[in-house]
Design a binder for these strands. Structure first.
Lengths: 132, 132
DNA sequence: CGTTTGCCTTACGTGAACGTCAATGTGACT
DNA sequence: AGTCACATTGACGTTCACGTAAGGCAAACG
C-alpha cells in the first residue's frame, strides 16, 4: 500500500534540481505525463524514471525530441513484432552513437591529461629557474 | 616551403562539414582568428586545430563560451606562473567533468544494451509462438 | 567588357529550451 | 473570513547558435 510514490511539483524540483517551468514544459512536449489531483500535478515513479533519462539525455546533448523517441524505447509493453523491430533499429543507432562518443571522450580525456602534464612540467621548470 | 597550410572558407567548410556562416560566427565570438588576404579569410593550421576542438566540444554539449575558455588552455605559450596555475585549475575541473561524463556514458550504454537484449529476447519468443 | 562566381558585411529571422510576469485558484492556518 | 503559500494557465521575453536574405567588391571567364 505504498501509494506514496506520488510527488508534488516542488518535491520533484528539489529532487532533480529543475524548475516547475521545466517540468510543465516537458509535460507539454509529452515527455512526462503526471496524474492530476484536481488541478495539481502528481508525478509518479514512472515520471521520475523518465525525468532521470531526460536529464541524462540532455547531458549528452540530445534534443528533447530525440529524447522523447529514446524514452519510447523504454516503454514498449506492446507485443507487436513490427514495433519491436523498429525499436531495435533505433536503439542500435543510439548505441553506435554512444559508443562513438565514448571513443571521442577517451580522446578528449587523453588530450586534456597530456595538456595538464605539460603544464605541470612547465611549472616545475619555472620554480627551479625563477625569472626567465 | 609548404606555406599552403592556408585554406579558404570553402575548403574549410568542405573539410569540416560546416557552413561559412558558422565559421564567421565562430570568428565573431573569437574562437577562430583567420588571416586576411584583402577581405578574404584564410584559415591557418592553428584555426583547423581549434575548429576540431570546437566541434568536439559541441558534441559534448559545451557552450561556445565554455569551449572558448577550454581553447585557451591549449594556447598558453605564456610563461607566467599565475596563468599556468589558473589554467591547471580550469583544466582539472574540465577533466573531472569529462570523467564524470564517462561514467555516465558507460551507464547509458549498459542500460541501452540491456534494453536491446530484452527486445531481442521478446522477439525470439514472439517468433517461436506467433499470435499471442 | 559584361556577367557569373565567390566572398564580404550588415541585419533581421528562427527553433529550441526554458525564464518571467500576470491573473486566477485553492488548500491550510489563525 | 482573511491572508499566506504555493500551483496553474496563458502569454510574452530571452539566450544560444546559427539561417537567410540584401547589397556590395573583386577576380575570372566567355
Amino acid at each position: 500500500m505504498t501509494n506514496d510514490d506520488l510527488m508534488t511539483i516542488r518535491q520533484m524540483c528539489d529532487t532533480f534540481e529543475v524548475t516547475p517551468r521545466t517540468l510543465r514544459f516537458y509535460e507539454s512536449k509529452e515527455l512526462l505525463a503526471p496524474k492530476r489531483e484536481g488541478q495539481k500535478r502528481l508525478f509518479t515513479r514512472r515520471d521520475r524514471a523518465r525525468l532521470k533519462l531526460i536529464l541524462r539525455g540532455k547531458r549528452f546533448g540530445f534534443s528533447l525530441e530525440e529524447i522523447r523517441q529514446l524514452l519510447d524505447l523504454y516503454e514498449i509493453g506492446d507485443d507487436q513484432e513490427t514495433q519491436l523491430t523498429q525499436a531495435r533499429a533505433i536503439a542500435q543507432n543510439r548505441l553506435e552513437d554512444l559508443k562513438a562518443r565514448r571513443v571521442d571522450l577517451e580522446e578528449a580525456i587523453a588530450d586534456l591529461e597530456e595538456q595538464i602534464a605539460w603544464g605541470e612540467e612547465t611549472l616545475q621548470k619555472l620554480r627551479r629557474n625563477p625569472a626567465a
